[in-house]
Design a protein around this nucleic acid. Structure first.
Lengths: 236, 236
DNA sequence: TACTGTGAACGGGTTCACAGCA
DNA sequence: TGCTGTGAACCCGTTCACAGTA
């Protein structure tokens, strides 16, 4: 995601400049890699090593980091804990983010139990479902709430982000209710275009889209393989 | 995402020109919207209407479509079934895509049951898990296979795409086995950087990344709200 | 007349080479 | 000496205005 690098809006870092969306997406990857290094006790990395581990080239990595400030030491490299902290701070991960998940099907439950959230500054504080048989069940530490009480529970839990994991036909209604309840950051897994005021940040993940993009590239590979094959036959 | 418009590789459409990654991602959205219109019996759309429904502006939509060819009628608009078919063909969705899902946790099951796949040309032909208690269970039409027999099942089912829905620490190993088994298109939900030969197309979806990007924008909004607030106080 | 298709201008991201500093 | 930080050039995608056509 490419991706994304799609959502927009201006953006200012601690350094005062804005971070390009494409860089922002990569910064989250650097942060994850640094986290792994932290647990392994690595203390210093060069831009070359970090770039390698993150799957990018080193000038790009250095450029990305330069949007935040100068947190390395010339001739030496970067201090892992320090750089990790600086990126976290720049991304706003030092604030507390309280996530409500709407939809307790397999996807919602997968998200609720995702270990990557807690460890990276996000706490799942509520999980909703519309099915009366599902409401009340426990998932990890959470008890599934009834969507009917969405607004009340959002307020009580002071959620400030939401994830939409509901069927396509329910997504717009839930989105509207979330927005009306004051949520301004939404991650949606529903394969529909959501309407919301511009001040609301919406990011979309659509698995069918991802597979279609893969299919496109795979088809291209097949076609060009056939072409070179045919050409090889002609050459004989 | 986002991209995303991130994955690369050259690309040639039926028209002969390559489709920019960003356009490619949007084309899948147009296709979805056209699909909805099809079921509603809509026969014609203007670029304006389609753009509106897809959440983009009309010049961008027309530019995106122009990468495929000239499938509209000036002064009239686009024929919905025809355009839909042309986009499908350009994306390679007329071929049959057989998807293997590795990992039958909540995420894997959510994907296996995702209605958006079948309806858009993807068939889930296998679902794997490593847990002996899970292997053998039925999920919809599928019986969960043992990852130990990954290679054999991939061959028997003629899978040509794979989705990785396994924990981070198992992802690289599974990726390697998929690649060795001849899979060249992989969609990964594991929050790790995967190593694979360049001819293998890998797309990544990381939910923590998405939330972090939302957090960044939300933090910015908070900070600028505080700033204008402080300024307002000073002005008094 | 109305709407599509596209060249050209614009802006932003990536790349690179090298300046700057421990 | 070695590695970071960055300005400048390059390249690609987006935007826009208008030319083209049923």
């Amino acid at each position: 995601m490419p991706d994304d690098p799609d959502a927009a809006g201006p953006a200012v870092s601690a350094h005062g400049r804005h971070i390009p969306p494409a860089s922002l997406a990569r910064l989250t990857v650097y942060l994850r890699v640094l986290g792994t290094m932290l647990t392994e006790g690595v203390e210093r990395v060069s831009s070359e090593e970090l770039a390698e581990a993150a799957g990018v080239n080193s000038p790009k990595l250095r450029k990305d980091l330069s949007y935040l400030g100068s947190y390395g030491t010339r001739g030496v490299g970067y201090d892992v804990p320090y750089l990790s902290g600086q990126i976290s701070a720049a991304l706003g991960l030092t604030l507390d983010w309280r996530v409500a998940i709407v939809g307790a099907g397999h996807l919602g439950r997968a998200l609720a139990g995702y270990p990557g959230f807690g460890s990276r500054g996000f706490e799942v504080v509520a999980l909703f479902d519309a099915d009366p048989l599902t409401v009340g069940q426990e998932v990890g530490w959470l008890r599934i709430s009834d969507v009917q009480s969405l607004e009340a529970v959002l307020e009580k839990t002071r959620a400030n982000m939401a994830v939409l994991a509901v069927p396509a036909d329910a997504a717009q209604e839930m989105c509207t209710r979330l927005v009306d309840a004051g949520i301004t950051s939404i991650l949606s897994f529903a394969p529909v275009v959501l309407q919301a005021p511009p001040e609301v940040q919406i990011r979309k993940v659509d698995m069918a889209t991802e597979l279609q993009i893969l299919a496109y590239h795979a088809q291209r590979a097949q076609v060009s393989a056939l072409a070179t094959d045919a050409q090889a036959r002609l050459m004989r």
